[in-house]
Simulated scan of single mutants.
Amino acid sequence: MTHVEHGFGPVWNRESRVLVLGSMPSPKSRQAGFYFMNPHNRFWPVMEALFDRQIGPSIAERRSFLLETGLALWDVIASCDIQGAQDASIRNALANDLRPLLSASAIGHVFVSGATATRLYRQLIQPQLNEAGLAVPMTPLPSTSPANARMSLEALRQAYRPIMLALED
């Protein structure tokens, strides 16, 4: 078990309309300093399928895609104890504070990727938002992690379609 600090902040701007949250970046993502950088994670292929466009492998291309499409990206957890990239091993999680980001942007919907991230969002973040009077709908999504290999890319694309609907609102 290793204590891990998130290490990098959210990708967003004032025009961001949808926030997608993971749990905690994997060791490969932390090493790269950006989200979903494990080549076996299917987040970026799902985004390419959903938006019907090539995104490119560089951090600059991925960041640009997010900002152009109105997506913001961050994680539920600011720090925790974790074994490798195993969400099931997460202990002592401290949440990121979403209130400043939600207050300073056009984000009207939050999507949370994975069961652990969803549970921790409901446990740690939702009470903060309720207390601050920030009523932003949240939709849980399946994880794009290699640990969720039972879902095909097409099934993940279908599961992530509500993001497109939220961007159209």
Rank of each mutant, 00 (worst) to 15 (best):
Q83P: 00
E61W: 00
L101M: 14
V112P: 05
A93D: 02
D75A: 05
P100C: 08
I107Q: 11
F65T: 05
R62P: 07
G70K: 10
P100F: 08
T69R: 14
I77W: 02
V76P: 09
L124P: 03
T69P: 02
G84V: 06
G114A: 05
L101C: 09
N92L: 03
A88S: 15
S113Y: 00
S113A: 13
T116D: 13
N92E: 04
A95H: 04
L102R: 13
S105P: 03
L101Q: 08
Q128L: 14
D81Y: 02
M138K: 05
I125D: 13
L102N: 10
G84W: 04
G133T: 08
T118G: 04
T69C: 08
A95C: 07
G133W: 01
S105C: 04
G84A: 12
D75N: 13
I125C: 14
Q86N: 15
C80V: 09
R119M: 08
H109I: 04
P127M: 10
G56S: 07
G133M: 06
A115D: 13
C80M: 04
Q126T: 01
A117F: 01
A117P: 05
P127F: 03
L101E: 06
Q123G: 00
R122Q: 12
W74T: 09
N130Y: 01
Q128M: 12
I59S: 10
D75Y: 02
M138N: 07
A78P: 01
G133L: 07
G70N: 08
A60K: 09
L66H: 05
A132K: 10
N96A: 14
F111S: 12
H109A: 14
I125W: 03
L98D: 06
L98K: 07
V110K: 11
Q128H: 12
R99L: 02
H109M: 06
V136I: 15
R63N: 09
L98P: 07
L134Q: 11
D75P: 01
A60R: 12
S113E: 10
R63E: 08
L73P: 01
A115G: 10
Q86P: 00
G108H: 08
I77R: 02
Q123Y: 05
N130W: 00
A85D: 15
F111R: 14
L101V: 15
I77L: 03
V76D: 12
A72Y: 05
L71I: 05
I90L: 12
R122C: 06
N96T: 11
S103G: 07
T118A: 11
V136W: 10
L94T: 14
P100N: 07
L120R: 12
V110P: 07
L129P: 06
P57T: 11
L66C: 15
T118V: 01
G70V: 09
R91L: 09
E131C: 10
S79Y: 02
G84N: 10
Y121H: 14
D87R: 01
T69A: 11
N92A: 11
Q86W: 11
A135N: 15
S89G: 06
A106M: 07
T118N: 10
D75C: 06
Q83K: 12
S64K: 15
F111K: 13
A85Y: 05
P137D: 09
